[in-house]
């Protein structure tokens, strides 16, 4: 479904990604791991067309490099930014409405599905999103992207700073997303959730993919974990 080949990205003059390659198959959950600053977030931003890049990003066979961000989104790629980038002055409902790409197009997710998955969002539908708790905001960013009916959703650090109970809820949502046939590319720093839910994992270091394998491969390779993941 998603094939990234030889992806190079730049912030101004600094060269951030050095030939990244990765694949995500239909309905697959794939994680991209690595320490802070190795280029994980930049990789998904480059896929979305949010940073200058060279190389190839094929989604369902079509080249994405060179398209504008909104065009990439319209092809079916969803992006959930880190730091809970909600629209603080708009209500929860309005945030979700903005997730829809047009007023007419409705996909496999309806507003009520979101409220069912996260009753808190339903209860606070008319509250300004800025006053929600961190966990609620994280759910809102996820749900907002799902409202746009993506076929592959890229999620940046969804569990950062969340209470363990909320992390469980988020993991539950990933299961729900997979059930509906949507692929996930998950960017994480922590191993725990990624090892539990992913089918395959990539590890990044210095702007490159330094390891790829199954959760079992990661568990068994202590040397790799020590070199590239553990802090």
């Amino acid at each position: 479904m998603l094939e990234v080949r030889d992806l190079n990205a730049y912030y101004g003059k600094s060269h951030i990604l050095h030939g990244v390659h990765l694949d995500v198959g239909d309905g697959e959950i794939v994680s991209l791991l690595g320490r802070n600053g190795v280029g994980r977030s930049t990789t998904i931003k480059a896929i979305m067309g949010m940073v200058d890049c060279q190389g190839s990003v094929k989604f369902k066979g079509d080249e994405m490099v060179g398209l504008k961000t909104y065009q990439v989104a319209h092809r079916g790629l969803g992006y959930v930014p880190e730091n809970r980038d909600i629209f603080p002055t708009l209500t929860v409902r309005q945030n979700l409405l903005l997730g829809q790409k047009s007023a007419r197009r409705t996909g496999r997710w309806k507003m009520d599905d979101m409220y069912e998955l996260f009753p808190r969002l339903g209860e606070r539908a008319d509250t300004q999103a800025g006053v929600l708790s961190g966990g609620e905001q994280q759910m809102l960013t996820l749900c907002r992207t799902l409202m746009g009916d993506p076929e592959l959703v890229m999620i940046d650090e969804p569990t950062e700073g969340l209470a363990p109970k909320i992390v469980e809820q988020v993991a539950g949502l990933f299961e729900e997303i997979r059930k509906r046939g949507i692929s996930i590319l998950l960017v994480e720093q922590k191993l725990a959730i990624a090892l539990d839910i992913s089918e395959r994992l990539y590890v990044m270091g210095h702007g490159q993919i330094v390891f790829e394998g199954t959760p079992r491969d990661v568990r068994e390779n202590a040397a790799m974990r020590k070199e590239w993941l553990e802090v």
Partner: peptide
Amino acid sequence: QTVEALGHN
């Protein structure tokens, strides 16, 4: 940027 990533031109 976030708005654009949601598919709005």
